[in-house]
Design a protein around this nucleic acid. Structure first.
Lengths: 343, 343
DNA sequence: AATTGGCACTCAGTACAGGTGAGTGCCAGA
DNA sequence: TCTGGCACTCACCTGTACTGAGTGCCAATT
């Protein structure tokens, strides 16, 4: 069992280790923190913490370093989210003011997050899966080529060019438009996808090759709506932090390039009652990121909730990073709420 | 003056150094290459090469390493572009077959290039600056909200939502569509931009606030067409090569994140008569990439020519990388020619 | 004039030894 | 339960010696 003071010692070790990046000994703890007891007493507490595998010694006689389990306890029980400075808050506001469109807003979001934290920033796009289709427009580009534009009520727009196996004229296009409109407008993306796919059933398709071709393209567009998207920034900051990741940032860069891994990881994180989440060190091992930690915060978009997060070394400054993620997420929620469709 | 054999020695040094990553001495040269002379003779040649600053010694008595100038001579006079293996050629073909759209094609292009070379791959999008507008479509999303879609003859499509200061009905939209159509359809992107901007002249604008708002949005879209875009892959490979860049890959990662630097760098490279270009080491210093080299090859798209390239350490394998860039560029040109609009 | 073998010299890299100091673990006493 | 004291460990630094790859130069050879 770990005593109350033992936990405070753990907190001190985590804080000092994150600050100095060096194993912390009993002596430096009594110097830097006012525990009112001697180094020997701290040593006894540290022995307990070591028994519980909350801290570990890199080699026989050296200071201690928090284990991943130790960080977990720190985050769950010991860390209070440190509120941002007003300067930081206003930085967020000015940086995110007046975005040109959703892409711009997301890009700025990750940029401001990486600037605040000095780490890699991640942000999920608002999901359009639960959004519903408000418009479908067909634009004739050539006699056998149509531009298919879909619009959702959550502000998502998608466009794609469909090549048709037959030529169509103005009238045909109007008919197709009306027919497709009736089929998917006011439906959710998921429903629309079902209904468009149903067109492929032998019965429906044979009749109209143009419709069949459009169905394929529309299916792709809907699929894209359903897909989660991720935007990132700050990969360059990893270069400075090489040794924080046991000497190889390769898995991190891979994950950043892959996207899909990070997307899954972020989706699977479990948020607490404040909408905050942390995934620490070896908890990410299944994703090949056992040396990294990710903190994230939910934000609310018209289509549902999504997440913004920060990825960094296991020995990151959790209170600050959680605070930054939360602040940005809140601001993002507010922006998306005000200007509903995300412009 | 450097003798003929001296140049062959330079070639040997570059080849061996690229292969082994270690300074190469006179002895290992006579062992690995059939010069038919003794090591002492090679040493004399090397002394000349050193006078010409084509090679340098990291420390007083060690093997020699090519200087940036040495690489330049190698690339210009000594390197023959090594043709790809048939396996590699067919890899390109299968990898690039049947792209879904232009984005997909470009993404695959850089992926295949990074796979072939193990380096960072870069590709400029075909420029739409000289393309011309074939369609403009306005879709009413709400009474004061229009989706503005632009299509170019080079396959570029752009869409953006415009918020209007006034409500408009079906008829208004039709009028606006006709008016804008007359203004920019069949014009080049550059012309269209001029004409749209002309709308902002006091005379035109006051009359119609809706038109003014649309002009702003269309201006943004056209600007986006004019902007060059870059797509990249293989950033993760840099992690393995850290020491190749004097220990810091930070500038490279920054440049990759910036994009705009690399875009300028690629644009400013001068291609030779075969459409190939190389920018070596300190030639890139103005861009903060003095430790990196970039090779590139032009490809031909409907809208004009653009470039694909490879970025890696100065000590890269120039013949192979030039060959890979050239092969991919050629294949890309062919694909874009066949399927003119890039789908 | 070009090439060669020989030789002294340089210097990075490695291995070894000794010294230092931060830090621990443990114990007896308060 | 806490504390001071003490022996012990071990990373890290420093200095020394050795090794070997490689050069630069020169006199001899072709």
């Amino acid at each position: 069992m770990v005593s109350e003071r033992g936990l405070q010692v753990l907190r001190a070790i985590v804080q000092d280790y994150v600050a100095t990046h060096e194993p912390v000994g009993s002596r430096s703890i009594v110097e830097r923190h006012a525990f009112g007891v001697s180094a020997a007493t701290i040593r006894n507490d540290m022995a307990q913490l070591e028994d519980e595998e909350l801290i570990a010694a890199p080699h026989t006689s050296s200071g201690r370093v928090p284990t991943d389990k130790g960080y977990r306890v720190f985050v769950n029980h010991l860390a209070q989210v440190r509120p941002l400075s007003t300067a930081q808050r206003s930085a967020i506001e000015t940086f995110l003011a007046d975005p040109a469109d959703l892409d711009d807003l997301m890009a700025r979001t990750v940029r401001v997050l990486t600037q605040l934290t000095g780490q890699v920033a991640l942000a999920q796009y608002p999901s359009f899966a639960r959004a519903s289709i408000t418009h479908i427009e067909l634009v004739a580009i050539a006699s056998n080529r149509l531009l298919v534009v879909l619009v959702t009520d959550a502000g998502g727009v998608s466009q794609r060019i469909a090549g048709l196996p037959v030529d169509v004229d103005e009238g045909d296009v109007a008919v197709l438009r009306a027919r497709l409109s009736a089929l998917i407008v006011a439906r959710s993306v998921a429903e629309a996808l079902d209904r468009v796919r149903a067109l492929h059933e032998p019965v429906g398709v044979r009749q109209d090759p143009a419709l069949a071709a459009l169905a394929v393209v529309i299916g792709e567009e809907l699929e894209e709506f359903r897909q989660e998207k991720l935007v990132m920034a700050g990969a360059a900051t990893l270069a400075r932090r090489e040794q924080d990741f046991r000497g190889s940032i390769h898995p991190l860069l891979e994950a950043i390039e892959e996207q899909v891994t990070l997307l899954r990881l972020m989706s699977e994180m479990v948020v607490d009652e404040h909408g905050l989440a942390a995934s620490i060190g070896n908890e990410n091992a299944p994703f090949g990121l056992g040396e990294a930690s990710i903190v994230a915060s939910d934000y609310v978009a018209p289509g549902g909730t999504a997440r913004v997060g920060i990825m960094g070394p296991t020995r990151m400054d959790y209170p600050s990073n959680l605070a930054a993620a939360r602040a940005v997420a809140r601001y993002l929620s507010r922006m998306l709420e005000e200007d509903d469709a995300g412009r």
